[in-house]
Design a protein around this nucleic acid. Structure first.
Length: 325
DNA sequence: AACTATTTCAACCGCACGACA
DNA sequence: GTGTCGTGCGGTTGAAATAGT
């Protein structure tokens, strides 16, 4: 397609940003807002590529960036999300307020990838091609003690942003949801379906065996049963497709908005709102997610096995006992 | 103290996608 | 339908920091 490069690279600064460049970029964006990255450097008076400006802002200068070490809770969430999503760092970042995809990617490559690998002795990384992205100098063959993480403040850019974080700590924004919210690139997510006997497939929407399945696993309509354990071990990444938009929307939504999209029923089925059916891609996505099938029945009611039910609940920050509707 | 090896992570790169003309 | 623009994504690189000798 012969695209021209995003900017002429001649005469542009590369490498680490200086405090002055950070200041210029921050001031410009505060005054003019984000976007138009290609023209931004020229207008702001920066000798930088537009992409570089965008990256610097998104990964470092934004006021809602959370700094400091990844907490154990965040780490656990990253592991769980990575298990479901693979290397879709922006999606994962969307569930970690204040964290960037770049930061999570780096953290995974330097810490979690190895940790997860050591916890899963056999071929856990080969399923979808992730957990194998360690660059050569990241690969280690033992469990030597790791260096204590310490700040790598350069004399340049870090200083300016530390000021930033000090003045606007994440704790002052308890409701910050995420740094990035949209991620549409994921084309396929694969999850093992629960064991066959746990799937209440809806072969015939008119004549389903809901009564029988509800008797096996009763739960009040509209209320998710508490999920206290880990993701079921038999949930893995094969044989099961989820559409892009559905999953990203689910993962980037709070439970209140999800409540408008679907409802868990007493028989472990999910009833999907008409709104979702307005978009075929979402229908397919949710259909696959709920049914491990590639269709959704006419009555908009899809069935999910208990395992999938629980996994979804956990990923959506479900807090036991909350009402979905 | 000096040097080398290792680790970390900010920044870069190429590509893909949606919007638009 | 085609090409371009604007943007976002995931993979990779390499400078700097740190640990080890």
């Amino acid at each position: 397609m012969g695209r021209s490069p995003c900017c002429s690279k001649e005469g542009l600064n590369r490498g680490a940003w200086t405090a002055q460049e950070d200041r210029i970029l921050t001031n410009y964006i505060k005054a003019h807002g984000e976007g138009r990255w290609r023209n931004l450097p020229k207008k702001a008076g920066l000798q930088r590529c537009g992409k570089s400006c965008r990256l610097r802002w998104l990964n470092y200068l934004r006021p809602d960036i959370k700094r400091g070490n990844i907490s154990p809770d965040e780490e656990e969430l990253i592991i769980r999300l990575h298990k479901l999503l693979g290397n879709r760092w922006s999606l994962i970042a969307g569930r970690l307020p204040g964290r960037t995809d770049n930061e999570i990617k780096n953290y995974w490559n330097t810490n979690l990838g190895r940790k997860v690998q050591s916890n899963t002795p056999t071929n856990s990384q080969s399923r979808s091609g992730h957990v194998d992205q360690l660059s050569p100098n990241h690969q280690r063959d033992d469990d030597r003690p790791r260096k204590v993480k310490s700040p790598r403040h350069s004399e340049t850019s870090k200083m300016s942003t530390d000021d930033n974080s000090a003045s606007e700590s994440p704790s002052s924004k308890p409701d910050a949801r995420s740094v990035k919210t949209n991620a549409f690139k994921c084309s396929k997510v694969l999850i093992d379906p629960p064991p066959e006997q746990e799937l209440h497939r809806n072969e015939d929407p008119i004549n389903t065996d809901f009564a029988a399945s509800a008797a096996v696993d009763p739960a009040p309509t509209g209320v998710l049963p508490p999920f206290t354990g880990n993701i079921p071990a038999d949930l893995s990444m094969d044989d099961f497709e989820i559409g892009d938009i559905c999953l990203s929307e689910f993962l980037n939504s709070d439970t209140s908005s999800i409540a408008n999209q679907g409802q868990f029923n007493s028989n472990n089925s999910i009833t999907i709102s008409d709104d979702l059916f307005a978009d075929d891609s979402q229908v397919q996505g949710l259909g696959w997610a709920a049914l491990s099938s590639d269709s959704v029945p006419d009555n908009h009611q899809a069935n999910a096995g208990p395992n999938f039910h629980q996994a979804f609940a956990s990923f959506l920050d479900y807090n036991g006992g909350d009402q979905w509707l």
